[in-house]
Design a protein around this nucleic acid. Sequence first.
DNA 1: CGTGAATATCTTGACATCAAGATACAGGAG
DNA 2: CTCCTGTATCTTGATGTCAAGATATTCACG
Lengths: 176, 176
Amino acid sequence: MSERADAVDYFVQQWAQVRPELDVTPMALIGRVSRVAVLVQAKVDAVFAEHGMQSWEFDVLATLRRAGEPYTLTPGQLDRTMMITSGTTTHRITRLEERGWVQRERDDKDRRSVRVSLTPSGLAQCDRVQEEHLANERAILEALEPDQRDSLISLMRTFALALGDRAPMEEQSPDA
Amino acid sequence: MSERADAVDYFVQQWAQVRPELDVTPMALIGRVSRVAVLVQAKVDAVFAEHGMQSWEFDVLATLRRAGEPYTLTPGQLDRTMMITSGTTTHRITRLEERGWVQRERDDKDRRSVRVSLTPSGLAQCDRVQEEHLANERAILEALEPDQRDSLISLMRTFALALGDRAPMEEQSPDA
DNA sequence: CGTGAATATCTTGACATCAAGATACAGGAG
DNA sequence: CTCCTGTATCTTGATGTCAAGATATTCACG
């Protein structure tokens, strides 16, 4: 008489019938994290699509944007922040350069390095889309009561830390 | 003086400095769901890799396995359950057929349809890997206190339902 | 200086995935 | 029976991603 069953409830119940000796409770959490991530991403993508862009494009723009003026990071900083490989970063920067939203210049201090910067057009695009994006995210979270949101944020934060997620380091050395 | 900051804490703080007028709290949840999903997936993948397989391969095998004997579903049932497109399903079945873990036969009742079944080898592979997979999932959740796990499961279930996640329908019509 | 290890980026090749459309069959209305 | 609509699967072409390695540059140490 509780609530309706979501997909994971159904999977757990199927396992109970087929292999009752198995303890599949870990699935109840891990499976849901995966499904919720996919479902949320689909809703987020929809808003970006209305603006003719992909989520990953906004991710790059927003990462540069929140770095503050002059909106410049290296490819290495980008891939560490975004949890992608260096090859993917190269590809993303090239595509965004073609759209005129970012530009590359070699760093004269360290000539191995590259400085990726938001162009005025990229900055404008980021700011233009962001409000609608945030409104969309707020709408998605309307599904939860405010105290549920707070609990969920706190628990997911604990989980993230336990999984080794950490604030990206500043350029300086960590201690003293 | 609270806990250490995870990556999302850092992003939120960056936004506060660069665009203080923006309310980015939705990110605190949606961003973490995405990052946690990626981090968890990496740990899950590692165990499958030890057995020479991909996560998506196990997903297909497990979906057939928990359907119960004769471990048979149609491609359509598979893609609805796994949240993938029909083209991806075709591709997955073909690859698994090459490995000898599933087989295809046309359905004689409805000749548009195909029956995908676990082979004895596929069944064995699924059962062989599953225990280690579940142990791995349990280890991942060790990071949380038991009551935190329960809260998180409950909240994620509410979230999943709010996002429209539902138990896949049985073959029969929904009512009476 | 010169040499080797470390670092930063890019290249290459493979691959899973998707969107859109093609193909084949089913089932009902006339 | 015929046609038309809906369903089930597969095909095609594009794309984003990764792993592994290639290239260029820096830096420490002798």
